[in-house]
Amino acid sequence: MNVDSHQLPPIEDEKDFEHLLKDMMRVRLKNSDGVLLNGTGGQAQYSIDVFGRDRDTLEWFGVQCKVKELGKKLTIQEITKEVAGIAGFNPAISTYIIATTAKRDTKLQQAAAALSTNQMQVIVWSWEDIADILKENEYRHVLMKYYHRFFVDARLMGNTVGKVITLQVGTDGRYISGYHLFIGKTTSHDPHFKNTYIIADMFSKTMDNFPVPAFESDIESAIRNRHDRKIIVRWINSVNIEDEVIYGDEREFYYSIPHRTLLEDFAMDEDSPEDSEETDEI
């Protein structure tokens, strides 16, 4: 799942925004039980909507949430007022975050730095900052919770999915050949090609499908070079194609085998009773 190219729309509901920041801080502070919403309507909140303690440093964090209508800005006066209001909060806050759905503003960041003291750091999180944090791997479950409508579980919907990767292959740790491959997989919903893996060489515009474990003959239409095909089929059988490649976060892979192993493979081919018309050299 790659959302880097998508702009997440700001959350418009104040309560939802507070809950979002609570869940984000639980990840940031590594403390799922020690991050809470502060009070209820009618109670004094001392400019804090969410507070919690960092599990590692034991420092206290406070968050003030500011939902802004489209085009509206957070002001320096608002920041100054909120920082002044935190004085009555107990325990003492070491890091105070003012989180807003408004756009990033350099003047606000400078004002926050100016309001910081040796006892408390003041930070402004704009919506761009929040969206960037949500796209980090450790916040993936928070992103899914609040933006699940952006994603489709292809395995449940019965769609074929895949992605383009870079694969460098060689022998004895030396990478000689590089490929841009599309690796995909059909699902169990497909009536003719259930759970079939797909491999395509994007530059050569060649493709094939294969089972797992794979054999050289399964990918010979996609990978024409016999030398590389022997290495790539071993790579396919060495990884979990679905979890590590298709649904994994990595897009660059490196794989080599001992040159002796490659020679043994070719020797076995020569001993095979089946004739081969391939003439690729090692």
Rank of each mutant, 00 (worst) to 15 (best):
residue 1 M to S: 09
residue 6 H to I: 12
residue 9 P to V: 08
residue 12 E to Y: 12
residue 14 E to Q: 07
residue 14 E to N: 05
residue 14 E to P: 03
residue 15 K to H: 12
residue 17 F to E: 09
residue 20 L to V: 07
residue 23 D to M: 08
residue 27 V to E: 06
residue 29 L to K: 12
residue 32 S to W: 08
residue 33 D to S: 09
residue 38 N to Q: 06
residue 38 N to F: 00
residue 41 G to N: 12
residue 45 Q to E: 08
residue 48 I to T: 08
residue 56 D to L: 14
residue 59 E to L: 12
residue 59 E to C: 08
residue 62 G to W: 14
residue 66 K to C: 15
residue 66 K to W: 15
residue 66 K to L: 15
residue 67 V to R: 15
residue 70 L to E: 10
residue 72 K to L: 05
residue 79 I to P: 06
residue 80 T to W: 08
residue 83 V to K: 10
residue 85 G to Q: 06
residue 86 I to F: 04
residue 88 G to R: 13
residue 89 F to S: 02
residue 93 I to W: 13
residue 95 T to N: 07
residue 100 T to P: 13
residue 101 T to K: 15
residue 102 A to F: 12
residue 109 Q to S: 07
residue 110 Q to K: 15
residue 112 A to D: 06
residue 112 A to M: 05
residue 113 A to E: 15
residue 117 T to E: 02
residue 119 Q to F: 05
residue 123 I to N: 05
residue 124 V to I: 13
residue 126 S to W: 15
residue 126 S to P: 14
residue 129 D to W: 12
residue 133 I to D: 14
residue 133 I to F: 15
residue 135 K to T: 12
residue 136 E to A: 06
residue 136 E to H: 11
residue 136 E to C: 09
residue 136 E to L: 14
residue 137 N to R: 11
residue 137 N to L: 09
residue 141 H to L: 01
residue 143 L to E: 04
residue 146 Y to L: 07
residue 148 H to Q: 03
residue 151 F to S: 03
residue 152 V to P: 14
residue 157 M to D: 03
residue 159 N to V: 02
residue 160 T to H: 05
residue 161 V to M: 06
residue 165 I to Y: 03
residue 169 V to N: 06
residue 170 G to A: 06
residue 170 G to P: 11
residue 173 G to V: 10
residue 174 R to W: 13
residue 175 Y to A: 02
residue 176 I to D: 04
residue 180 H to D: 12
residue 185 K to Q: 04
residue 185 K to P: 00
residue 188 S to Y: 00
residue 188 S to L: 00
residue 191 P to F: 03
residue 191 P to N: 01
residue 191 P to I: 02
residue 193 F to Q: 09
residue 193 F to P: 06
residue 193 F to K: 11
residue 195 N to E: 13
residue 197 Y to Q: 05
residue 200 A to T: 07
residue 200 A to S: 10
residue 201 D to H: 02
residue 202 M to P: 08
residue 204 S to W: 05
residue 206 T to I: 03
residue 207 M to R: 05
residue 207 M to Y: 08
residue 213 P to D: 06
residue 215 F to V: 00
residue 215 F to H: 02
residue 217 S to W: 11
residue 220 E to K: 14
residue 221 S to K: 13
residue 221 S to P: 02
residue 223 I to F: 13
residue 226 R to F: 03
residue 230 K to F: 01
residue 231 I to M: 10
residue 234 R to F: 05
residue 234 R to E: 13
residue 235 W to K: 04
residue 235 W to P: 03
residue 237 N to G: 05
residue 239 V to W: 07
residue 242 E to P: 00
residue 242 E to Y: 10
residue 243 D to F: 01
residue 246 I to C: 12
residue 247 Y to C: 08
residue 258 P to W: 00
residue 259 H to R: 08
residue 262 L to N: 00
residue 264 E to A: 06
residue 267 A to N: 07
residue 270 E to R: 05
residue 274 E to I: 07
residue 275 D to L: 08
residue 276 S to H: 02
residue 276 S to L: 01
residue 277 E to D: 10
residue 278 E to Y: 11
residue 280 D to P: 11
residue 280 D to R: 08
residue 281 E to N: 07
